[in-house]
């Protein structure tokens, strides 16, 4: 189910990328009372990372080993970021029962939908929907409260990403295309990160990155660089206040 939602997010990102306004999103309660609302302890929730092979003819197919590698790199990158920039304390996600895992999966799928809607509604609000951006207020409900009860953490970090790795044949086609003036898409990593309050389900902060074709989430350095870039706008209160006008 999360893969379907991710496709929606991809389309929206590409649309958002073309529009003005702040790149990240901040819940209105963060703007009103950052010291109280911003989390002190966070859990990294299971990242939803898919790395696809992009064939010569443009056929996209997930490669499970690559996805696993990218997932590992994102985890390492987050841990490194936490060590160097201690904005909050990381807590490990405990082992969950079958029912708890199913609940978590459902909540994360719900997050994809709510997050996608949040971006869509606020990407180009115009006069009529300006309040959606100024008073950003999206929630997934208190379904993840059980994690707070078990770990004492205030919030969870949600990471979703999709990457496309062109095959050698695709690269050859790209070269051939250049000769005849045809541009071929070579795939871009798209990474979303968000922070969700466990008590209220409020999406406190969201950001995304659309990287260049040569960036590769299977590479530890590239994954680290994307995460650093994303968290540069955390919480980004001043930049949000200026940009949303």
């Amino acid at each position: 189910m999360r893969k379907l939602c991710r496709l929606v997010l991809i389309v929206l990102v590409l649309a958002v990328a073309a529009c003005g306004g702040p790149q990240h999103r901040l819940h209105h309660t963060v703007l009103e009372n950052p010291d109280k609302i911003l989390p002190k302890k966070v859990v990294m929730l299971p990242a939803d990372i898919v790395v696809n092979e992009l064939s010569a003819g443009g056929v996209v197919e997930e490669v499970p080993e690559w996805s696993e590698l990218a997932r590992k790199n994102i985890s390492i990158a987050l841990a490194a970021h936490a060590a160097e920039n201690p904005k909050f304390e990381y807590v490990k996600l405990p082992k969950l029962s079958k029912e708890q895992q199913e609940k978590l999966d459902l909540q994360l799928a719900f997050y994809d939908v709510v997050g996608g809607t949040a971006y869509d509604t606020t990407r180009n609000p115009g006069k009529a929907w300006q309040h959606k951006l100024a008073h950003f207020d999206y929630s997934i409900g208190d379904g993840l409260k059980f994690i707070k009860e078990q770990t004492g953490a205030d919030a969870g970090i949600v990471v979703s990403a999709v990457d496309f790795v062109p095959t050698d044949e695709r690269k050859a086609m790209w070269v051939a295309g250049q000769l005849v003036g045809v541009a071929l898409w070579m795939g871009n990593p798209i990474v979303f990160v968000g922070i969700v309050d466990f008590e209220t389900g409020n999406i406190l902060w969201m950001n995304f990155a659309l990287e260049g074709s040569f960036s590769d989430l299977r590479d530890e350095k590239d994954a680290g660089s994307v995460l650093t870039k994303l968290f540069k706008l955390y919480p980004g209160i001043d930049k949000y206040t200026v940009a949303k006008k």
Binding site: S55, A56, G57, G58, V59, E169, M173, L184
Partner: peptide
Amino acid sequence: VKSSAAWAMG
């Protein structure tokens, strides 16, 4: 499917 798509691209 992949080789057909490649042919189609060509």
